[in-house]
Design a protein around this nucleic acid. Structure first.
Length: 254
DNA sequence: ATGTCTCCTAAGAGGAGA
């Protein structure tokens, strides 16, 4: 089972990229983030023509997550039931016995921003939500844009980014707390090239110079990690014309 | 180095968010 995640930064703008990528990579489930469109106007028909079903939690202008799949989605849950939030950032469903959650974690803006305190509160809520999800679904994947670079090796210039948003200690502690629940960073289960990132700023030719961060992650429960065969970042779409600033992350399970 | 991209409001640029 091939499960991928991709922050597309507007599904309407990125639709040709996403469709082309689906045809090429043929994942079983694709978690999408930053749709920036309401559920009612999500381009479902284009996906249906490729044989994909779509579950959407969208909203106008900001945020928005989806689950695109070749098989039926069961037990679809929008958001975190115990965390009231107008921002659409979480969507869960079960595919062939595997629980998959698409997450678009808050960016935080800066350490002094109200958005940063919201980010930390949001991660505390995610921690509790995933704790209960793990007890209900031992075979669990949580994939998305975490907006956290877990370690210095996930940052192109750890000195420049030290203590900044996406890299700060409170954020990294929250990420570790998720792993402590019994989740595994799929990417780090395998030998990887150095300087492997999933996001590059649009500015300063960041992609060509590989000035990036690894902030998109596929976390898997320990039980499911036994079946994990590969986890890679597909840099190719980031080099296409008018790209998202994020690259897809792909995990292959038995 | 306020640099790039997307979307909104509202009628032309400018702000928000990332």
């Amino acid at each position: 089972m091939k499960i991928a995640t991709w922050n597309v930064n507007s599904i309407r703008v990125r639709l040709p990229h996403v469709l082309a990528w689906l045809e090429k990579e043929v994942p079983d489930v694709l978690c999408l983030q930053e749709l920036k469109c309401e559920s009612a106007v999500f381009p479902r028909d284009d996906f249906r023509e490729l044989g994909y079903q779509v579950q959407v939690a969208g909203q106008k202008t900001y945020n928005g997550v989806a689950l695109v799949s070749r098989c039926d989605a069961e037990d679809v849950v929008v958001g975190m039931p115990l965390f009231d939030d107008v921002q659409q950032r979480v969507l869960a469903a079960t595919f062939q016995g595997v629980r998959v959650i698409s997450v678009y974690c808050p960016n935080g803006e800066s350490l002094t921003s109200d958005k940063y305190t919201y980010k930390l509160r949001w991660f505390d809520a995610l921690h509790d939500y995933l704790k209960s999800a793990l007890s209900e679904y031992p075979r669990l994947v949580v994939a998305g844009d975490y907006n956290i670079a877990p370690e210095d090796r996930d940052v192109h210039d750890p000195v420049e980014w030290a203590g900044e948003v996406l890299c700060s200690l409170p954020e990294r502690d929250r990420f570790k707390a998720l792993l402590n629940l019994g989740l595994v960073d799929g990417f780090r289960q395998f030998p990887q090239e150095e300087r492997a990132y999933s996001w590059w700023h649009y500015r300063v030719n960041a992609f060509k110079r590989n000035l990036g961060l690894r902030i998109d992650h596929v976390l898997a429960s320990t039980a499911l990690t036994l079946d994990l065969r590969q986890c890679t970042i597909d840099r190719a779409p980031r080099g296409w014309e008018r790209p998202s600033d994020h690259a897809p992350v792909v995990a292959e399970f038995l």
